[in-house]
């Protein structure tokens, strides 16, 4: 039960990082933490009291549930893939705007819109 509650707390903390922080890299870190907290939820579902790791062994009859493990193996890979793509976007944003702070980027975009640029000019 504590596992469940802790994973909830971790999700909340991570989600807060994603929404409240303006730095794009920090947001990516938050997303990573959020998904990892979801993994804890799944793996906790898979645990069986008194079970062992689901690898066939002589004399063992109770195994933990392998299915959540499989799902989370997939989800971990999805998570790191998202991190990689998010970070490469952040790097490109840094090169294009000179900053990775959301506030500054928004301001620059607003200025561009007031200047009547309609999003068709080449980035330098």
């Amino acid at each position: 039960m504590y596992d469940y509650l802790v994973s909830v707390f971790l999700m909340m903390g991570a989600l807060y990082v994603v929404i409240a922080h303006g730095n794009l890299v920090k947001k990516v870190i938050g997303l990573g933490m959020f998904s990892t907290a979801v993994f804890i939820l799944y793996i906790t579902i898979g645990k069986v009291e008194g079970g062992t790791a689901p690898i066939l062994e002589e004399g063992v009859t109770v195994y933990s549930n392998p299915l959540p493990h499989v799902l989370i193996l997939t989800a971990i890979v999805v998570g790191v893939a998202t991190t990689a793509v998010g970070l490469s976007l952040a790097v490109r944003i840094k090169a294009a705007y000179g900053t990775v702070e959301e506030d500054e980027i928004t301001e620059m975009n607003l200025q561009a819109e007031e200047a009547g640029q309609d999003g068709t000019e080449d980035e330098s």
Partner: peptide
């Protein structure tokens, strides 16, 4: 996209999309 705002749009979509996907994952769980 050729405009730099495309990058920012893509990043915002990534953040929202990933939160969405994680919510779906929780729901499935």
């Amino acid at each position: 996209g050729r405009d730099r705002r495309a990058l920012n749009a893509a990043f915002q979509y990534l953040v929202m999309g990933t939160i969405g996907a994680s919510f779906i994952l929780i729901g499935i769980g």
